[in-house]
Design a protein around this nucleic acid. Structure first.
Lengths: 190, 190
DNA sequence: GCTTCGAAGTTTAGGTCTGAAGTCTTCAAG
DNA sequence: CTTGAAGACTTCAGACCTAAACTTCGAAGC
C-alpha cells in the first residue's frame, strides 16, 4: 500500500485557485449569457465534492487504507448478510471495470481486509468476503466520516437540511433518468 | 490521445448500484445512530457529482479531448488577458502536481491545444498559452455544458435555485475554512 | 565576481486505472 | 456425449497520476 492519497500541494505562495465568486465573474467576462445562478450551483457542487474527498482521504489514510479500499468495504457491508459479493458485482456497484476490481481485490487480500474464494457450486465464480479487520476499518472510517459530515452541515437548520436533501434528490433523479446506464468512475465516497 | 473517458459499464444484467434510498436504509441497518438527513445530503452530493462528470466526459469526448484537458483550457481562459500561465500556476489551480502538469502540457502541445515557450526575461520560467483551436474547443465544451446544466436544474424554480446556491455556498465556505490548504486532486469540472 | 541557496520545470520509478484479449467453466442444442 | 456459445474473471499493454530526485537559472551574501 502506498501511504497517502493527498497531494499536499500546500506548495508555495503564488496564485492559487480562484475563489468561487472570482470564477463566476471570470465566466461572465469570457462568455456572455451564462446564468450565474446555474453556474454557482454547479461549481459549488463540484468544489464541495473535491473538498469532501480530501477530508475522506485524510481519514482513511489514518486507517492505513485508501478511499478506494474503503469503498469496497462499504459495498460489502451494505450488501448485507452474508456480506459477500463477486468481483463483477462489486465492479458494477463501484462503477469500475472488472480488471480494476481484480487488482484492487488482490491488494486488499494481501492487506487482510477481504477474503477471496472460489464458489464451489459454480467454479467460474469468485466470492469476496470481508474480514474482521476489514469490518473494523469500515466502521472506524464511518465514525470519522459522520463527525466530519455533521460538522459540514452544522450551519444548516433541520428544515434547511431537509430542503437541501430534497432538492439534491430531485436533481439526482433527473440525471439518473437521462443516464439510465449506471456508470461513471467512482472516485467519490458516499 | 485516448478516445473515451467513459467506462461504458452498461454491462450485463445483475445487481447494479443500490438506489439512494436503499443505501440509506442499509446504512441504518448496519450502523445505528446515523442521521438519515445528513446521509441523504452527502450521498446525493456525491452521486450527483459522479453523474455530472460522466455527462461532461461524454461531451468533451465528442470534441476529441478529455475532461482533464478541458480543465486546462478553462484555467487559461479564466485567467484572462493575456491567457497565459506557467505550468506551476496551472498545477496549483488544477490541484495536481507539477510533474503531472508537465505531461499534460506535453500531450496538449502535441494536439495543438496549447503552446509552450520559454520566458525570455527569466529563462527558468515556461509560459503556456492557448491556441485558437484550444479556445474554440473550450467554448464549444462550455456551450454543451450549459445545455446540460440547464436541463439538470430545469425542475427548480428561480427561488429554489437561489436557495440551493446559497446553501451550497455556505457549506463550501465551511469546508474551506477547515481546509485552508487548497488541494485535492481535481477529477471534476466546474 | 564567485558561491550558495532557492525556485521552476522536467525526469524517473512505481501505482491504479481502462480496454482488449485471453482462460476456464457452465449450459443448451444437436 | 459432444460441441459451440456465453459468462466470469484474469492478464496484458497503455494512459495518467504521485513522489522524489535531478537540472537549470536567478538572486543574495561575502
Amino acid at each position: 500500500m502506498v501511504s497517502a492519497i493527498l497531494p499536499l500541494m500546500a506548495d508555495t505562495h503564488g496564485p492559487a485557485e480562484p475563489s468561487l465568486e472570482e470564477q463566476i465573474a471570470a465566466y461572465q467576462r469570457e462568455f456572455q449569457g451564462l446564468d450565474p445562478q446555474v453556474e454557482r450551483v454547479v461549481s459549488a457542487l463540484s468544489r464541495l465534492n473535491r473538498r469532501m474527498n480530501v477530508a475522506y482521504g485524510r481519514q482513511t489514510a489514518e486507517l492505513g487504507i485508501s478511499n478506494a479500499e474503503w469503498e469496497v468495504l462499504k459495498a460489502l457491508v451494505l450488501a448485507g448478510e452474508p456480506y459477500r459479493l463477486g468481483p463483477g458485482d462489486l465492479a458494477r456497484r463501484l462503477g469500475l471495470t472488472p480488471a480494476a476490481m481484480t487488482h484492487r481485490i488482490d491488494r486488499m487480500v494481501a492487506e487482510g481486509l477481504v477474503t477471496r474464494e472460489r464458489d464451489e457450486s459454480n467454479r467460474v465464480r469468485v466470492i469476496v468476503g470481508i474480514t474482521e479487520e476489514g469490518r473494523a476499518k469500515w466502521l472506524e472510517g464511518l465514525r470519522m466520516a459522520t463527525v466530519f459530515e455533521e460538522e459540514l452541515l452544522q450551519d444548516l437548520s433541520g428544515d434547511e437540511r431537509a430542503q437541501l436533501g430534497a432538492m439534491l434528490t430531485r436533481l439526482l433523479r433527473r440525471v439518473e433518468e437521462a443516464q439510465p446506464d449506471a456508470g461513471g468512475r467512482l472516485t467519490d465516497l458516499d
